[in-house]
Measured scan of single mutants.
Amino acid sequence: MATGGRRGAAAAPLLVAVAALLLGAAGHLYPGEVCPGMDIRNNLTRLHELENCSVIEGHLQILLMFKTRPEDFRDLSFPKLIMITDYLLLFRVYGLESLKDLFPNLTVIRGSRLFFNYALVIFEMVHLKELGLYNLMNITRGSVRIEKNNELCYLATIDWSRILDSVEDNYIVLNKDDNEECGDICPGTAKGKTNCPATVINGQFVERCWTHSHCQKVCPTICKSHGCTAEGLCCHSECLGNCSQPDDPTKCVACRNFYLDGRCVETCPPPYYHFQDWRCVNFSFCQDLHHKCKNSRRQGCHQYVIHNNKCIPECPSGYTMNSSNLLCTPCLGPCPKVCHLLEGEKTIDSVTSAQELRGCTVINGSLIINIRGGNNLAAELEANLGLIEEISGYLKIRRSYALVSLSFFRKLRLIRGETLEIGNYSFYALDNQNLRQLWDWSKHNLTITQGKLFFHYNPKLCLSEIHKMEEVSGTKGRQERNDIALKTNGDQASCENELLKFSYIRTSFDKI
């Protein structure tokens, strides 16, 4: 039985969820670079991206490699990797027998973001014989899940209580170790020597080791999670996991709180800001991140802002960003909400898709409305799209047979046209069989910064309504002859009103 693990408890099935942008060198404390989270699957090609990484700022997932063999891993080693800020997950990587050479110096898994409450997941690794993470000293947050690894031993010899604050939620089941077939031998045991430290858990006094050649490092209890030197002297209180010299914040392997210019500090002093819960960055760093993602459509890219001495992905609820200094300031009234469309555009074809934009005031991208039916549609669209004030790209209304009016965009005031449909149009209306009105132009103002209007096959939309939009939106004169079809717009509506004058002759039985 794995020490510190839980057996036999019912657990939810383990679901495996399925960018080499360097964020800056980590400095003297770390020998390499800070790398983003990685999802490495199918083959070993991307694994080489770990070569210079000291910190993975995010998670590391290595999974679904069915053609790899043990010899493929023999020359692979990433000794610079010290810390993973989120979680480490391995799933069905064939041929991998140990992690001792792959990650010989991995010391800390912070667990800032977890995989279903777990910071370390080893699942269905069919050839893994031992973990071998002999320098792993601290899992700051989260638990361990090690399950269905039929060859995995050296679990009962690990004292997880020396690595985690609590072992109650560890789930370590259905491994070879369960069948008591392992016969784990710690260093020196074969020669009758006791080389590794022994600890007591559940009444068992057991030597602690990761492999037959690597003991588990056990520091004096007084050192807590700070770690200790090879001689057993406690590291500085700002260290986490390990250090090369005692009581020196510049000799830590990793930091308990924050890293700044080669030393570990309790908090980031001005003019620095907390970033990702582990390091200090200056304003320029946060500003660069903001600008890199301002026009990016890459998933996970955030326009970072500053709030409460932190550089964070977005302002919290009730705050909006001051564009001059990136500071989050309290909103006066309802907060603006910028919604970034991942692929640059979004099609609204149902109430469900409209709900995804609920509360958005600025759309960074283009909207395509293609709704053919739905219950209580006008009210639903207004509830979900009615706060949109600005669209950076274009607005396209296409084959939306259920629409009679666009009044559900009740606050839309600006279409920038930074991206144009077919390279020309910022407003595009095609084949809307029941569209009769755009907006009530006596109450609604709309500016279209650039781009043209396109109207074709809107049989109940009168040309007068379209011409009014040209005047109000500032697009009059931009359109070419064929942009607004004269014969297919309003051709099934009563669009022309003329005053009919009647004269009559009164007659009676005795007068003409």
Rank of each mutant, 00 (worst) to 15 (best):
T211L: 10
L260A: 07
G111E: 00
T189S: 10
D159T: 13
C219Y: 03
G183A: 08
K294T: 02
D277E: 11
I312M: 11
P197H: 08
Y273M: 15
D159L: 03
N42V: 07
G192L: 14
L50G: 02
K148P: 01
N150K: 10
M137Y: 10
F258Y: 11
P334K: 15
L289H: 07
H212L: 14
P334M: 14
E314N: 15
P336I: 12
R297W: 05
H48T: 08
H214A: 14
K129Y: 08
S112P: 00
C280E: 00
R69A: 15
C209H: 03
E207N: 01
H290L: 07
I222E: 14
L120D: 00
T320L: 06
F78T: 01
K191G: 13
A198G: 03
R263M: 00
D159V: 05
I122E: 01
N135V: 01
I172P: 12
R145M: 08
G300L: 10
E124L: 02
P336S: 07
P36I: 06
P36T: 08
D159K: 06
D248G: 02
Y304D: 02
H291E: 09
V108T: 12
G37T: 05
C219H: 07
G300P: 09
C215N: 14
Y273A: 04
Y273I: 06
C293S: 03
L96F: 02
C315W: 01
T250M: 10
N308A: 08
P270V: 03
E130T: 04
G241L: 02
G37H: 06
L60W: 00
N150P: 14
C196S: 12
L50V: 06
Q216K: 05
R69E: 07
C328Q: 01
R113F: 07
S112G: 06
E151K: 14
G32M: 11
T140Q: 11
R92W: 10
H226V: 11
Q276D: 15
H28A: 06
F205T: 14
L164Y: 03
T199M: 04
S225F: 13
L326P: 01
T85D: 01
C331G: 03
L164R: 05
H212K: 15
D165A: 06
R69W: 05
D178W: 07
E151R: 10
G111N: 00
Q61T: 14
T85I: 04
L106V: 02
P197Y: 08
N170E: 06
L128P: 01
T229K: 05
L289V: 10
P336L: 07
P79L: 03
I306K: 01
S296L: 11
P313S: 08
R297T: 08
V206L: 14
F275N: 01
L60T: 02
P334G: 06
C215A: 09
V55A: 05
N257I: 01
T157S: 07
C243D: 01
R69P: 07
G333S: 05
K129R: 08
S166I: 07
N179K: 15
I163G: 01
Y154A: 10
K224W: 02
D248C: 02
R297S: 08
D288N: 14
S296K: 09
N322L: 13
D177F: 11
T320K: 03
N179V: 13
H307K: 03
E151C: 06
Y94G: 03
L155C: 14
I146R: 01
Q204I: 03
R208Q: 15
T329E: 01
V34Y: 09
H302Q: 14
S143D: 10
S225Q: 10
T85F: 02
S77A: 03
M83I: 14
G203L: 09
F103S: 00
R298S: 12
E71N: 11
V265R: 01
D277L: 05
R263Y: 00
Y87R: 00
R263C: 00
L29T: 12
P249G: 02
C328R: 01
V281S: 01
L233C: 03
S143A: 12
H307I: 04
F78P: 00
I82C: 07
N52V: 15
G188V: 07
F285Q: 05
L133K: 01
L260C: 01
L50Y: 04
V173R: 13
Q299Y: 03
C311S: 00
C301F: 07
E180R: 12
S284C: 02
Q299R: 13
R162N: 14
C252N: 00
Q61I: 04
L44Q: 06
N242S: 12
C243E: 01
T45A: 04
C264Q: 01
P220S: 04
E168T: 13
C243I: 01
H236I: 02
K80W: 05
E130I: 08
D159W: 14
I139D: 01
C219T: 02
G227D: 11
V144G: 02
L88R: 01
F103T: 01
R279L: 13
H307T: 02
E124G: 06
E124T: 02
Q303W: 06
E168G: 03
H48A: 06
C252P: 00
A198F: 10
L164I: 10
G300A: 09
N150S: 10
T189L: 10
S161R: 10
V265W: 00
I158P: 09
S112R: 12
I62Q: 00
D277K: 11
C235V: 00
S98V: 02
P31T: 11
I40R: 00
Y273V: 09
F66Y: 11
V218C: 10
I201M: 10
L120R: 01
N52S: 10
C293M: 00
N242K: 07
E238M: 09
A119V: 03
T140R: 10
G232P: 07
R297C: 05
L155A: 08
C235M: 00
P270Y: 07
C53V: 02
T140F: 08
I56P: 00
S317P: 07
C280A: 00
T320I: 04
V206T: 15
N195C: 07
I201D: 06
I56F: 00
P31R: 02
R69F: 09
T199K: 07
N105L: 02
D39L: 06
H226L: 13
L89T: 05
N179R: 13
C223A: 03
P330E: 04
D247H: 15
L63R: 08
Q204D: 14
N135L: 02
V218M: 06
I185Q: 13
L50H: 02
R256H: 04
C311Q: 00
T250V: 07
M137R: 09
F285I: 02
N202P: 08
I82G: 05
H236T: 02
K191L: 06
L332A: 07
G333C: 03
P270E: 02
T229I: 10
C53E: 00
G32S: 03
D86T: 02
K129D: 03
H127S: 15
F91N: 12
Y319H: 07
S77G: 07
K217T: 15
P70R: 10
P220D: 14
Y171F: 11
I185R: 06
K310H: 03
C219R: 04
R41W: 09
E151Q: 12
P336K: 06
D184L: 13
E130C: 03
Y319R: 02
I109C: 00
